[in-house]
Amino acid sequence: MQGPEVPVRVAVRVRPLLPRERLHNHQVCVRVIPGANQLVLGKDRAFTFDHVLTSKTSQDEAYSKIVEPLVHSCFEGYNATVFAYGQTGSGKTYTIVGGGNTDTITEEEYGIIPRAIKQIFSTIAENHNVDYTVLVSYIEVYMEELRDLIELETSSKDLHIREDENGNTGMGLKLKIMK
């Protein structure tokens, strides 16, 4: 059961050190405070989020805590958008798409997109007597320019960030499921 409606939730995921970082004896510069949804940077700079996922959090756990409830809400008539934000190398692609080579990726390594697609079409298959329309956009902001990662031929000049009358912003991975 979810609490009161919250328009935006923020989750942070601490990625594990990469092999090359371990090889060069790099150290993790953040600590997660268990049960407090807090991340501590350095010695004393604490930040609180709705969800804090440690470097040991599996892809499945990240999906089930953060995205699965959003997909359920789409089937209840709500729109959902997932933004992945962070600097290069922070783990966005790993979380969104998954780890490893796309030709050899295992189900355990699937990111949130393959998991969401599986959940969406499983739910649709379970409700075979209902007609659905699934609309998906996958937009990247890179160097202050928008790129459509589904329709690669789309010019960045044809993409716009829009805000509706309720203050909802349209971009990112966006799902809309209509009955």
Rank of each mutant, 00 (worst) to 15 (best):
E108L: 05
V28Q: 13
I33R: 10
Y85W: 12
E144T: 11
M178S: 10
R162G: 12
R31T: 01
A62M: 09
H24R: 12
L135W: 00
M143P: 05
M1C: 07
L173R: 02
I105F: 00
F49V: 03
E109H: 13
E163I: 12
V6A: 12
Y94E: 10
L17W: 05
T81W: 15
V10C: 13
S55I: 04
K157Y: 04
N168L: 07
S73Q: 14
D103M: 08
V14G: 05
N79K: 11
I112R: 01
I161M: 11
M171Y: 11
Y94H: 15
Q59V: 11
C29S: 10
P4K: 09
D164T: 08
A84L: 02
G86K: 03
L173S: 00
P16N: 14
C29T: 06
I124L: 08
D103F: 07
V130K: 10
S90R: 01
P19M: 08
N168H: 08
M143R: 14
I112W: 03
T57A: 15
Y63H: 04
Y132E: 06
A36Q: 14
R20S: 14
N166H: 09
V8Q: 11
K65R: 15
Y138Q: 00
L135H: 09
F83R: 02
R115L: 04
D164M: 09
V40K: 01
I161R: 05
S58A: 05
V130I: 14
M143K: 14
E5A: 08
R9W: 12
E140N: 02
V67R: 01
E5P: 03
Y94S: 08
G89K: 05
D131G: 01
L152V: 13
V14I: 13
M171L: 12
T104H: 14
L18M: 12
I113L: 06
V134F: 07
Q38E: 11
I113N: 03
M171H: 07
E163G: 09
L146I: 00
K56C: 05
L146S: 03
K174V: 08
K56R: 13
T133A: 08
I117N: 00
L53T: 02
M1T: 09
M178E: 13
Y142R: 08
L173Y: 05
V52I: 00
G91W: 03
A46C: 02
I177E: 00
G89C: 06
R115H: 09
N127S: 14
E153Q: 11
T93V: 11
A116W: 04
F121Y: 15
V136C: 06
V82G: 04
T57N: 04
G99Q: 13
V136D: 00
I33S: 06
R147K: 14
I117C: 05
D158V: 04
R45H: 10
D148L: 06
F75M: 13
A125F: 03
V136E: 03
P16T: 14
V130Q: 09
I117T: 12
G99F: 02
V28D: 06
V52E: 04
H72P: 01
I150C: 07
